[in-house]
């Protein structure tokens, strides 16, 4: 999707107008937090370097950064798989304890979806796999059954429920993996590169699934390299570099910060790049609100005709404010 377009005059970056924030930032309480977390792997690689990041409750957060910048390591800390060498992970204002009770609480609240669904799905049938998490929480069988059915319905995998994992496509396995953590009724779902390797339609369906989970009050955190998706979809963007936090903020603000783009070696979303050029050339007033997708950009340059409905909607804004969005 991210098509590389030769940019005009790379040497002298266009200065963009200061970002106007479309949605009024309402300060949200912090649900999950890393406080000064440092972690190094046994081979000496420092993966996180006194990193402090807060995940606000009820937001859609996208974590960006080059490969090996520590995104997955951070997620494993949030899931309680890795323990910080120094610093702490804080859930709902309380530092995470690494005893049995503490881990049960953390793992119920934080649903971690791994990049490779094959490492997560183990049971012979989809329904059984989804029932694994809730059963570990010690719920009654009736409650587990309800949770499993609700997760199957929310992820729209009813037709796959009795199939074995090896008869599922990659995209279907992803949905099953999400259902597996959703059934545990977590407050936050953290997915490591959920759209990697998915075709546009599956990506659109997955984003729409995340939207519906968000509408139901859950916090969603995903990592991706897809800057267009991050711009169009995120409430908040977190940019990491070499185990440190480079910048966090509203996507249009982050993607218009040349230092961040250069520092994290991020490509600016094409929509914003075009917007910048059009501002520069005087087609768009410099105080205009930066667009977050192609439709918003089209409106800015006076194209008010409704766009042709695409056979596959990869317009994440449509997904953002579409019928599923009725919070």
């Amino acid at each position: 999707m991210a098509v590389t377009v030769p940019s005009i005059d790379k040497a002298a970056p266009v200065t963009y107008p200061s970002p106007g924030l479309r949605e009024r930032e309402v300060p949200a309480e912090t649900l999950l937090e890393a406080r000064g977390v440092t972690f190094s792997y046994p081979d000496g690689t420092v993966a996180l370097n006194s990193l402090s990041i807060g995940i606000p409750r009820g937001r859609r957060v996208v974590v960006l950064g080059a490969n090996g910048c520590g995104k997955s390591t951070l997620f494993l800390h949030f899931g309680g798989v890795l323990r910080p060498k120094s610093g702490e992970i804080v859930l709902d204002g309380q530092p995470v304890r690494y005893d049995r009770a503490g881990m049960t609480r953390l793992r119920q609240q934080v649903g971690l979806v791994f990049q490779d669904p094959d490492s997560q799905l183990f049971a012979s049938s989809v329904r059984q796999d989804i029932s694994f998490g809730p059963l570990n929480l010690g719920w009654s069988e009736a409650k587990v059954r309800d949770a499993v059915e609700a997760a199957i319905e929310a992820t729209q995998i009813g037709d796959l429920a009795d199939r074995p994992a090896h008869l599922l496509s990659y995209g279907q396995k992803k949905r099953v993996a999400i259902a597996g953590v959703l059934a545990m009724d977590p407050s936050v779902i953290i997915a490591d590169e959920p759209t990697a390797g998915l075709d546009p339609e599956s990506t659109a369906r997955l984003v729409s699934l995340f939207n519906s989970l968000h509408d139901a009050g859950r916090t969603i955190v995903i990592s991706t390299h897809d800057v267009e998706l991050a711009l169009a979809w995120a409430d908040e963007v977190v940019v990491m570099r070499k185990g440190e936090l480079l910048r966090t903020g509203h996507p249009t603000a982050v993607f218009q910060d040349p230092e961040v783009l250069a520092g994290a070696r991020l490509q600016q979303p094409i929509v914003l790049e075009t917007f910048g050029h059009l501002c520069h050339m005087g087609y768009i007033p410099t105080d205009a609100v930066p667009p977050r997708n192609a439709n918003e950009l089209a409106e800015l340059i006076g194209c008010h005709c409704s766009p042709q409905p695409a056979p596959i909607s990869t317009d994440f804004d449509a997904l953002r404010s579409g019928p599923s969005h009725h919070a």
């Binding site: 490779d116 490492s119 059984q128 059963l135 929480l137 545990m184």
Partner: peptide
């Protein structure tokens, strides 16, 4: 490696030694 990542993923869903599933 697969075994290690499976164990990690199961731990995240509260694995504590028994693979309980609904029947």
């Amino acid at each position: 490696m697969r075994a290690v990542s499976l164990f990690t993923a199961l731990s995240c869903r509260g694995y504590s030694g028994e693979l309980r599933v609904l029947v």
